[in-house]
């Protein structure tokens, strides 16, 4: 009997040894050998992988439909990193996402002479730039207020190059009050859903009612058509932005409500949508596509690293699979990751 009492002692000793091993300094780190230092190994590997991915993303830019092999594997490799929770909130991740966003900040100075340039930011954030206007939708820094994914100098630098901000709904992965205030402080309008940030600032303008609303921006030569969508019982503005004479884009926020489908079926009869930016996990994807009937799809919301478990982090490869299922609709798509852009011309 006594020998069985030794078992916990032995297990405890093994655990203590293992812990001691993992906290010791690694004598072979300079040779890239990480025996008994798994967390250091994973950090170093993530760093190597993010660097390789960033290099490849610059070489293989967004393209229509199924990406060619190098870009395809790059995106899947990124999925793998972003679906390993050990990599969450680690320095390699912060370095990577800030590198990606810095490129957006720099590219926003490049003029658009024709059509629309569409930038993808974190989560469901997009910036659409025409020759006359630069508008942001659901622009957020990601992470928490205490430790945002994107550092202030970059994300607010990006915000400073935009002329207006449109918010789909109040969820923090789409709406950020500090971001809205930064727009307002620069005298730029923020259009928010009903009841969000009421009375905060005259430039932050929630809808008075959750109904279809047209808002003119004459100085930007565009009209915002807000369609009254929902995510279950949450007001979700579907922002249809009409850049006069250039193109019309629609971003669906977190649209997820069966009872909106009757009017969504007819959106295409009233709006000539060029680019639809749906949440990649939208329900009844096919019916939404038929309702909007866009000329191009650019999905959003992949790899949200917030509170979701990995099964709902929506990999890029899943979007590609979904697009394959929908291929019979013959609507082209462009799969983009953080910090990329695509020039759309009618």
């Amino acid at each position: 009997m006594r020998k069985y009492l030794l078992l916990p002692l032995v297990l405890f000793s093994i655990a203590a040894y293992a812990i001691a091993q993992t906290t010791d300094e690694n004598p072979y780190a300079d040779q890239y050998i990480y025996w008994n230092h798994l967390s250091d190994y994973k950090l170093a590997q993530a760093s190597a992988a993010y660097n390789a991915i960033d290099t490849m993303l610059q070489l293989y830019r967004p393209e229509r439909n199924l990406p060619q092999l190098p870009r395809h594997l790059t995106l899947v490799s990124l999925d793998q990193l972003l679906h390993d929770t050990d990599n969450d909130a680690t320095q390699p991740f912060y370095t990577f996402i800030n590198q990606r966003m810095l490129r957006v900040l720099q590219d926003l100075d490049r003029p658009v002479t024709k059509g629309l340039r569409i930038y993808k930011l974190y989560n469901d954030g997009f910036i659409i730039k025409s020759a006359k206007a630069t508008v942001a939708i659901d622009l957020i820094p990601g992470g928490s207020d205490a430790k945002p994914f994107i550092q202030d100098s970059i994300i607010y630098g990006i915000a400073g190059k935009c002329d207006a901000l449109f918010i789909s709904h109040w969820h923090p992965d789409h709406a950020n009050l500090n971001m809205a205030k930064s727009f307002a402080a620069r005298g730029k309008r923020v259009i928010a859903p009903k009841d969000l940030w009421v009375g905060v600032d005259p430039m932050i303008q929630p809808l008075a009612e959750h109904v279809e609303t047209d808002i003119e921006f004459p100085e930007l030569d565009l009209t915002l058509h807000v369609l009254p969508g929902h995510q279950d019982n949450v007001y979700n503005n579907i922002n249809v932005v009409e850049f006069h004479g250039v193109g019309t884009v629609a971003q669906t926020g977190d649209q997820w409500y069966c009872c909106d489908m009757d009017w969504i079926d007819h959106v295409h009869e009233r709006y000539d949508i060029d680019v639809l930016m749906p949440n990649c996990w939208i329900h009844d994807f096919e019916r939404h596509l038929l309702g909007f009937n866009p000329k191009l799809i650019i999905t959003g919301h992949e790899n949200e690293l917030g509170e979701h478990s990995i099964d709902h982090r929506e990999a890029y490869w899943i979007t590609l699979k979904k697009m394959d299922v929908l291929a019979h609709l013959n609507i082209p798509y462009v799969l983009m990751t953080w910090g990329e852009w695509y020039d759309y011309n009618r």
Partner: peptide, 29 residues
């Protein structure tokens, strides 16, 4: 999972499918 590719609630299946997607691409590369 191949009807809608929604893996909510099935993280192990998600990871298994991710490997199923990735390995052939790595082989081709």
């Amino acid at each position: 999972f191949e009807e809608d590719y929604i893996f909510w609630g099935y993280p192990a299946a998600y990871l298994a499918y991710q490997s199923k997607v990735a390995f052939p691409l790595i082989d081709q590369m």
